[in-house]
């Protein structure tokens, strides 16, 4: 059973010629089949955690460890992590001019699966998955994220999640910017993947809204670069009623 283990993770960035520590000792274990919601105020470091796990070069790991089934994730390049089974649905996916969605998906599936998917079944697989996310088939011919609306970008991220079938999926604010219909469609996509029981999910969100569609097994409150409190789904209800004030120093922000 695949397990992602994060131990005492410290991460900093270089900003204005100074080193700024953003993650200050994160401990978390995500097992295959589990869903963990990470909730926290703006700027608490949620995206930093997501990017650090995926290997974004901007973030420097200063101490701690991350392993996937015992393998040292921090030693791997970004593409190696993806091939090892990590997937990050990004909060702000970038445009890639000149690269069509269909070409991108196929190249990526080929890389992750280790061999090119059979063309006939692949076309069908993509079509059906897109249909499930209510994406117009014309999207396949557009350039990756180019001119996509916020909601379309998120559907495209979940499309990749469904096609790449990772061991651990990190979803960074996949819910933000979605209207109720889109939120339901995207959540259904995530749930299809979860129902296989083969993915561990790290659901990063600012709002409890998405938790009505995707039921977490665990809820963690993220504040000031670390997990401030962990609990079951009931913790989300508490946050819904009380907000993050209790976790933010001086009660400001969020």
């Amino acid at each position: 059973m695949a397990t992602l283990e994060i131990r005492d993770l410290h991460v900093s960035v270089e900003a204005d010629n100074a080193t700024k520590e953003i993650l200050k000792g994160v401990d978390l274990t995500v097992k295959q089949g589990e869903t963990h919601a990470i909730m926290g105020p703006n700027g608490s470091g949620k995206s930093t955690l997501a990017y650090s796990l995926a290997g974004h070069p901007k973030y420097t790991i200063t101490s701690g460890s991350v392993t996937l089934d015992g393998e040292d994730v921090l030693e791997m390049t970004v593409d190696e992590r993806a091939r090892a089974g990590l997937f990050l649905a990004m909060q702000y996916p970038v445009e890639i001019p000149g690269v069509s969605v269909s070409n991108f998906l196929r190249t990526s599936a080929t890389a992750v699966r280790g061999e090119a998917p059979k063309l006939r079944t692949w076309v069908k697989e993509v079509k059906e998955t897109m249909a499930g996310l209510q994406m117009d088939p014309a999207f396949a011919e557009r350039n990756v994220n180019e001119g996509f609306s916020g909601g379309e970008k998120k559907r495209h991220e979940i499309l990749q999640l469904e096609l790449l079938k990772p061991k651990v999926a990190i979803l960074d604010e996949t819910d933000s910017g979605l209207d109720v219909d889109a939120l339901r469609i995207v959540s259904e996509g995530v749930n299809r993947v979860r129902e296989t029981g083969e993915v561990g999910t790290l659901l990063i969100t600012h709002y409890t809204r998405i938790l009505r569609y995707i039921k977490p097994d665990f809820v963690h409150v993220f504040a000031n670069g670390r997990i401030a409190e962990s609990g079951g789904a009931e913790l989300a209800d508490k946050l819904e009623n009380e907000g993050y004030e209790a976790y933010v120093k001086g009660g400001a922000s969020a």
């Binding site: 974004h56 993806a82 091939r83 990050l88 990004m90 890639i96 990526s108």
Partner: peptide, 15 residues
Amino acid sequence: DDEQLFYLMSRGIDA
């Protein structure tokens, strides 16, 4: 740019 490279690589595609 690096962000595009990161995005593609995060999908398993080598540099």
